[in-house]
Amino acid sequence: MQIFSPSADTWFRAGLAAFAVLVAALALVGGGYARSEYLTQVGWTRDQQVPFSHKHHVGDLGIDCRYCHTSVETATRAGLPPTHTCMTCHSQVWTGAPMLAPVRKSLATGEPLHWRRVAQLPDYVYFDHSIHVDRGVACVECHGRVDRMPLTWRAKAFEMKFCLDCHRDPAPHLRPPEQVTRMDWSDWSEDRAEAFGMAAMRRFHVEPARLDSCEICHR
């Protein structure tokens, strides 16, 4: 008696081929998903109570980042401005704008505005704004050209790779600390930026060999 039908070999081969295709497809879809902007949230805006425009305030008016994010030079957090800061101008400008009604309500009731975080790190990551700003890592390195964002979105995928790329080779990402909040600062040639970066690293004793230790960010 014959155990296998005449077509069994063909079916087996077809099955093997189908399995290989399935594995390849899963790898592609999985890899694509892991790198997708759907997962990293790059370029995604979030619904906010007030449609705050960095493009208007930074790009058009030229207000320095630190006018609102006051603790960026001294604390781990850059700081979200209290309603008092918004009202410094908006007690006189755009006073009746429906768009700003939640801001006026917040001032009247004392209840802070509820912002949805756009650039947020996982709780298992330690990050300190002040040391980065002090050493000359510009805001734009991580937050992108906020002066071109009508609504704020995440500019970079805050994955470990993103942090490590810079921690392993900081030189091209450093600039004079007084220029950190400038958005368009790019008039240096690559060589000059590299030379400055190397000098800054020597001065601040920045050692890439130590900067990628686990405990630098996971403590």
Partner: peptide, 11 residues
């Protein structure tokens, strides 16, 4: 959940 741990963070 390690991403959003059971602790209070600023804001």
């Amino acid at each position: 959940n390690m991403v959003q741990q059971a602790r209070y963070d600023p804001y």
